[in-house]
Amino acid sequence: MTLATSLNGAEQRRPSRLGRMLEDRLPYLIVAPAIFILLLVGLFPLIYSLVVSFQRITMTDNDTSFVGLLNYAELFRDTRLWASLGHTAIITAVALPLELLIGFLMAQLFIDRLPGRQLFVALLVLPTVISPIVAGATWRLMFDVRFGPIGQILSFFAGEPVRILWTVNPAYVYPAIIICEVWQWSPFMFLLLLAALSNVDQSQLEAAEIDGASYLRVLRAIILPSIAPVIAVACLIRGLDLVRIFDIIWALTEGGPGSMTETISLYTYVQGFSQFEISYTAAISFLVIALLTIITTLVLKRMELAR
């Protein structure tokens, strides 16, 4: 008994005063470093940028006097800016539904039991994890008018030589970009939708089958409502990515021909790093952030409602 008592005594661990304090403050201590870095690299530049956007700094003129909303007013007269926003909108509006649709169809193919499904899925996700710049480079090789396979395949089906300058011909640059984009990101949609479809309540589907409901009815009444939240999240993630699309276009067309495929990210890059319109670039940045914030908020609101 004495042994047990003394052992129990030894088992009591009273931490030092410092240890106690560190433990009490732990929730804040472990949040601090991450928040510090986020503020340093995330928020600080934004504030800096906001200040600059009210000044008039260009490559040649380091004028730090405040000019109010001058830069922002100029945004409205900048036709190239609005054109780039238009290009971004077109790419997003075409690519996003396409990716969703193709992803959904692909998921349909794999939703029922299919031996070896894991392998197929593993292979199909590869495009999605590739660096976008590599994806762009790959398709540049694919599209090449002389040495690429696309022209060769098209010629085979057309029965005559088909020579399309995909990355230069104004009629084909958008299809080229969208093909590459859709190739890379449909598998993303596919993966998410496959997971969502697998989570659809099986008993509901069986009940519908017993009731003799048609596939379209089942799709509308059971499947779509149950995967709607996932679709919303997938569209939000991809939508935000598409709005800031840069790498693929840089690799494929570099915004050309002319500025025909210049998206808002490319335009901002050009203004900032070629023209060195420092203040003006800052203003554009805030326009982009404002637009994205509005879109995201709207989407999130709708998602809340859907829940």
Binding site: R244, F246, I278, V288, I289
Partner: peptide, 29 residues
């Protein structure tokens, strides 16, 4: 629940900010 929902939302919103909007000021800094 440090910082409540707001801190969590702020953190994920950091993820939503397009790189192009911050890359320029970061470059200057």
């Amino acid at each position: 629940g440090t910082g409540g929902e707001n801190l969590a939302m702020w953190i994920i919103s950091q993820r939503m900010i397009p790189p192009i909007a911050v890359v320029f000021p970061i470059f200057l800094l």
